[in-house]
């Protein structure tokens, strides 16, 4: 991959930092009144998801990271890996559980997800913003309570626990916002 110098840094650019692929979140030029210019850069580590700040002398460069974002369809879990397919090439990817993070709680077969590949290896999976999940366990619903005041925890078929309104009962399909893990309505 090509090297990129600080003057080429842009938000969203994928670069290698200490051996990990990272994405630039923010690039701030700091020029002390009596000193040379620096770039204070906020990165997101694409593998761990952690953010970190590093400062560079202006003119320093970093190697670009061979990172691609692809839309892929989730097929099935075979017990050892999560299997996805690129709908354009029909190529299948078996993604290790360690790359799944929070995504595993929202994967519904046939749903389209965003998969980040680094050197052709999947490193992270982002589910759709909203998914439809089935409630498999929750306290009994309260008749007549339709206002949705308060709430109760409900376990979904994927294992994730979501706070739902009191009137929701076992077996119902609910819409969940995967970014906030919040109930977003009934099907």
């Amino acid at each position: 991959m090509a090297n990129y110098s600080t003057s080429q840094f842009k938000n969203g650019m994928k670069l290698m930092l200490d051996g990990n692929p990272c994405s630039i979140v923010n690039n701030e030029i700091v020029k002390p009144g009596k000193g040379q210019a620096f770039n204070r850069v906020k990165f997101k580590d694409l593998i761990t998801g952690k953010s970190l700040i590093k400062t560079f002398k202006s003119g320093e460069s970093l190697e670009g990271a061979d990172v691609m974002e692809l839309d892929m369809q989730y097929l099935y879990n075979d017990g050892s890996a999560w299997n996805f397919m690129d709908p354009e090439t029909f190529e299948q990817y078996a993604i290790d559980d360690s790359a799944m993070d929070d995504a595993r709680g929202y994967l519904v077969e046939q749903d389209m997800c965003t998969v980040v590949l680094w050197n052709d290896n999947p490193i992270s999976v982002t589910p759709p913003n909203h998914v439809m999940l089935e409630v498999v366990d929750t306290d009994p619903g309260l008749k007549g309570d339709t206002a949705g005041t308060g709430g109760k925890p409900a376990t979904m078929n994927t294992g994730v626990v979501v706070q739902v309104p009191l009137f929701i009962s076992i077996g119902e399909i609910v819409k969940v916002d995967t970014r906030t893990n919040e109930y977003a309505g009934r099907s």
Partner: peptide, 24 residues
Amino acid sequence: HGLSIEFEWIEDLQMFLFVHLVEP
């Protein structure tokens, strides 16, 4: 801190560390 050490003079490195570690 994983930072560059390519500096000609100590004052430039002092400023670099100030910008990275103190200013925030």
